[in-house]
């Protein structure tokens, strides 16, 4: 029987610390952007920054970087379901 344990090669401490630094800077950016009072655009910018942070967490901290293609793609499914739900909800809200 094959003895090698499954699981991916380890990342490095440095990668994680860089990821954390980027996340903290983006959190600071989202607060700074809110101070600019950009009106309707502010929600778009806030969501873009939040999604960038989520992507960093998924890719590095949650190891999607090292996973098989199945894991890389599968998590898009609930996001797609969510997009459809919110899309159709707003079709109802907007054109009722």
């Amino acid at each position: 029987m094959e003895r090698k344990h499954e699981g991916h090669e380890a990342a490095s401490y440095k990668t994680y610390i860089f990821t954390w630094t980027a996340l903290v800077l983006l959190a600071a950016a989202t607060i700074a952007v809110a101070e600019l009072h950009m009106g309707a655009a502010s929600i778009v910018v806030a969501l873009l920054i939040a999604s960038l942070k989520a992507a960093l967490i998924l890719y590095f901290f949650m190891h999607l970087r090292y996973e098989k293609w199945f894991f890389k793609l599968a998590f898009l499914l609930p996001i797609l379901v969510f997009m459809f739900s919110i899309g159709f909800t707003f079709l109802d809200v907007l054109y009722r």
Partner: peptide, 19 residues
């Protein structure tokens, strides 16, 4: 744990930073 962190990443701007 990371998933719970991601939820907060969205909650924070959506509740605290509405301008």
């Amino acid at each position: 744990w990371h998933f719970v962190d991601i939820v907060w990443v969205y909650l924070f701007p959506l509740f605290y930073l509405i301008t």
